[in-house]
């Protein structure tokens, strides 16, 4: 399995093939369509992250001491970005995730989607993903 660093580099490379932003978004939308469904029991208000415009649900399980995320969103671009985050963050140890540097978001030019008002729940979502990791870390006594 690639390291966090390598996976991010791969994503940057894949997306930066496209010059046109519409193509980049098309690619992100295709990723959204491939994101595995979140378990229905986790698509409830309890798992809802209060973003600005779209809804985001996220759950994490600890499997063999690695964090396994599932998520969904009612906005497909948001969901595609989640798919990217999950690709980078899934099946890592809680310690790795707690202070992960998600540099790829900036490198693919999605940073403007991270400004508070356009966040579509993304900032909140990254925070929540890290919080899950922190909770697992504490639980494991790492």
């Amino acid at each position: 399995m690639s390291s966090i660093q390598e996976t991010q580099n791969q994503i940057v490379e894949e997306i930066n093939i496209f010059d046109d932003w519409m193509d980049k978004y098309n690619y992100i939308i295709e990723l959204a369509k491939d994101l595995p469904l979140i378990d229905a029991q986790h698509k409830t208000n309890q798992y809802l992250i209060d973003g600005c415009q779209s809804k985001v649900w996220i759950n994490a399980d600890l499997v063999d001491e690695k964090v396994h995320y599932t998520a969904d969103s009612d906005a497909i671009i948001t969901k595609g970005i989640i798919a990217l985050l999950i690709r980078v963050m899934n099946d890592r140890t809680p310690s790795e995730l707690v202070d992960i540097d998600l540099f790829f978001l900036e490198e693919i030019g999605l940073k403007e989607n991270l400004s508070p008002n356009r966040a579509n729940g993304l900032v909140a979502m990254i925070k929540q993903m890290k919080l899950y990791a922190l909770a697992f870390k504490t639980k494991l006594g790492q």
Binding site: S54, A75, I77
Partner: peptide, 14 residues
């Protein structure tokens, strides 16, 4: 089939 924010995000790029 589209969330309004998706549409706005794409139109922004145009």
């Amino acid at each position: 089939g589209a969330h309004p924010s998706d549409v706005g995000t794409l139109l922004n790029r145009l």
